[in-house]
């Protein structure tokens, strides 16, 4: 496992913990898209079914379980514990616009036409677009709280580090996961506009607000 992969996973974990910590401390989930969080919970659920079929490593198993827990606790905070603070009027992205093409594509383009493999492929395609309801919400309200932007930054950083991980794996192991790489590139592109705003505004101490 190369350094980009480890840093990518840690960045992913940090993003989820930042979000959970923010909701927990402020007892408020305004500005967070519950729909994106449901999609991420669905991504982990459909991808990590191999917890029951394949053992890869202790690291792999522990991280999968932690990711699943974080995703479900976040969804529970938004729709359960702190639902009164959830800004549902601004979380209006139509999920069927994402789910229908993603389901269709995972049946058409996969490594193996088996239920587990189609679900894994579905999770890869879905992850690449799961952040869109959150980005849509920010563009609708025109602003985001600083910790929300740190969350998005580390989530985007995780994607960028995975790209470096794939380049390294291709060089050293000749490993090339076409489905993951193509989806990963698409996913990273979605963060570019946000990265620009993050560097030009948030890192200079300003709140992220759109003109």
């Amino acid at each position: 496992m190369n350094v980009f992969r480890i840093l990518g996973d840690l960045s992913h974990l940090l993003a989820m913990i930042l979000l959970l910590g923010k909701i927990w401390r402020s007892k408020c989930c305004a500005g967070i898209s519950g729909k994106s969080q449901i999609l991420f919970a669905l991504v982990f659920t459909t991808r990590y079914l191999d917890l029951f079929t394949n053992f890869i490593s202790i690291y792999n198993t522990v991280m999968k379980v932690v990711f699943l827990l974080c995703a479900y606790v976040t969804v529970y905070m938004i729709y359960g514990k702190f639902r009164k603070t959830f800004d549902s009027e601004n979380d209006t992205f139509r999920l069927e616009f994402l789910l229908v093409p993603v389901i269709g594509l995972s049946f058409l383009e996969n490594y193996n036409f088996t239920p587990l493999e189609i679900l894994w492929t579905f999770s890869i395609y879905l992850e690449s677009v799961a952040i869109l309801p959150q980005l849509f919400m920010i563009s609708k309200t025109g602003e985001a709280e600083t910790i929300t932007t740190h969350y998005l930054f580390f989530l985007g950083l995780y994607r960028a580090l995975y790209l470096a991980n794939w380049i390294r794996r291709y060089q050293t192991e000749n490993f090339y996961d076409q489905i993951a790489v193509v989806s990963g590139v698409v996913q990273t592109i979605f963060y570019c506009d946000f990265f620009y705003l993050y560097v030009t505004k948030v890192l200079k101490g300003k709140k992220l607000s759109l003109p």
Binding site: H12, D50, I56, Y111, N112, N165, D177, I179
Partner: peptide, 10 residues
């Protein structure tokens, strides 16, 4: 990619 070996990435 041979998916029968499992997917090692998260």
């Amino acid at each position: 990619v041979d998916p029968s070996a499992g997917h090692d990435e998260l």
